[in-house]
């Protein structure tokens, strides 16, 4: 056998090197960059960054807009994550049990995930139109109050939440559908023999056994809720006022409207830390409690 000119011990690192370089440049260096410049007064207008210690963070906690934005982000997260997960699970169970038209239901509920958020924003802007939009026309027919939706500070965030539910529902439903296929069929047969009804059967068997999927969807949707930029930018610009602004949009405004890189870096650091903290918290609290499949 020919002697290899390179020690095989280097091989794994050679395989990793290309991706590692890009991972460092576009993920880890940026994280370090954000933490570093969060301690600087750094505006694109002033040429040199000036060290200011915790100055940006002090300014941040005294900034009412920051708290409004955080509050909106929490509301947006809570009211997109849990309703979507619940609906997705119910729909997955129903579709799993249905005999015909399975494909039609799957496609009809899943397609919003596939179309671009920009396109979704466009058609929902039309549907939310206070006078011409289909939603208010429908409410009018039922003689119900017709809210101003995107143009009203009381309903602007809610409008974004409703659209987000529609957009993500299909993806989570498919994940649940995949999870359901792994559950042991015998349990349901036993439950049927014992005479358990539909509701009891799913409450006692499906809900606990599907919890690994639920945990996964929880994490995915949490990350999603921090990414809500496109719809905010296109549909409300965070308004009216700051009623529908979220953290990522506020970062964008600070960086690319006010060119305040120091503040934007501080906000980015807060976002990175809260995201990682929440993910680890969810894993820590639920990770162990999750019931793993019997097989």
């Amino acid at each position: 056998m020919k002697k290899k000119y390179r020690s095989p011990r280097f091989k794994p690192y050679l395989f990793l090197l290309p991706s590692l370089i890009f991972l460092m440049i576009f993920t880890y260096f940026p994280i370090a960059y954000s933490f570093f410049y969060s301690f600087f007064n750094y505006s694109m207008y002033t040429r040199k960054p000036i060290f200011c210690g915790l100055g940006n963070y002090v300014k941040m906690i005294h900034d009412p807009i920051f708290w409004q934005v955080v509050y909106n982000n929490v509301l947006y997260g809570a009211f997109t994550i849990f309703p979507t997960m619940f609906l997705a699970l119910i729909l997955a169970i129903l579709i799993d049990e249905v005999k015909s038209l399975k494909g039609f239901y799957q496609i009809g509920i899943f397609y919003p995930t596939v179309i671009p958020m920009t396109a979704a924003a466009m058609v929902w802007m039309f549907m939310y139109d206070p006078s011409l939009g289909i939603i208010n026309q429908f409410l009018g027919l039922l003689h119900l109050p017709q809210p101003g939706w995107l143009g009203d500070s009381k309903t602007s965030l809610l409008s974004l939440i409703i659209m987000a539910i529609w957009k993500n529902l299909g993806y989570y439903m498919l994940l649940y559908l995949a999870g359901l296929q792994l559950l042991p069929k015998e349990l349901y047969e036993v439950a049927d023999i014992e005479g358990a009804g539909w509701f009891r059967k799913h409450y006692y068997i499906t809900f606990p056994l599907i919890s690994p999927t639920t945990l996964f969807i929880f994490i995915v949707s949490l990350i999603q809720s921090f990414k809500a930029f496109t719809q905010v930018y296109l549909m409300t610009q965070g308004g009216p006022g700051y009623s529908s602004s979220v953290l990522i949009f506020y970062i964008y405004e600070n960086a690319f409207r006010y060119w305040d890189i120091g503040m934007a870096s501080a906000l980015t650091s807060v976002m990175i830390l809260s995201l990682l903290f929440l993910v680890l918290l969810i894993f820590g609290v639920f990770g162990k409690k999750v019931t793993y499949s019997l097989v």
Partner: peptide, 30 residues
Amino acid sequence: KFKGSGILFILYVIQIMLPLEALIVPNYMI
């Protein structure tokens, strides 16, 4: 099998949790 594979793999996994949208400001500067 190689040294540091565990730590290196964690670097890849953490990236799954950090959407690039969160890092637009530093990435723009880069």
